[in-house]
């Protein structure tokens, strides 16, 4: 399987930022161990990139690869939404869901 490329945008070391990092790391280690690249960008240090990427909310996770590019907004505490956003939904409930659709 191909390598996931992810970028997480946060603003400072807030509780919400910490939660997002924690939640994302857990999912990545569980489902994508060794097959992901994660870049964490603090917008307080690099505000210009927020303008370029047109980011309004933080935390914002951008899945750059594989296509399609998708933004997942929030502290990533909703695991199902996170997995769906990362196209990993099938891997968590492998047999059941895919068969139904």
């Amino acid at each position: 399987m191909e390598t996931h490329m992810l970028r997480l945008f946060i603003t400072g070391k807030t509780a919400r930022s910490q939660a997002a990092i924690q939640n994302l790391s857990e999912v990545c280690e569980t489902y994508l161990a060794g097959r992901y690249e994660l870049e964490i960008i603090d917008l307080l240090e690099d505000p210009e990139i927020a303008e370029i990427e047109k980011i309004l909310q933080t935390p914002t996770l951008i899945k750059i690869y594989p296509a399609p590019t998708r933004r997942i907004i929030g502290d990533l505490s909703n695991r199902e939404q996170l997995l769906a956003g990362l196209d990993l939904y099938g891997s968590s409930f492998a047999a059941g869901t895919e068969g139904q659709s």
């Binding site: 945008f9 946060i10 603003t11 400072g12 807030t14 919400r16 939660a19 997002a20 939640n23 917008l43 307080l44 505000p47 210009e48 927020a50 303008e51 047109k54 980011i55 309004l56 909310q57 933080t58 935390p59 914002t60 399609p68 590019t69 998708r70 933004r71 997942i72 907004i73 929030g74 502290d75 990533l76 505490s77 909703n78 695991r79 939404q81 996170l82 769906a84 956003g85």
Partner: peptide, 24 residues
């Protein structure tokens, strides 16, 4: 942005917007 694929997972704030306004 039209066509931008976005999903929500958990709570967020508008910190990025604030950073952009301050920067501008």
């Amino acid at each position: 942005e039209p066509g931008r694929d976005t999903t929500n997972s958990g709570s967020y704030d508008l910190g990025a917007l604030l950073v952009r306004i301050e920067h501008a």
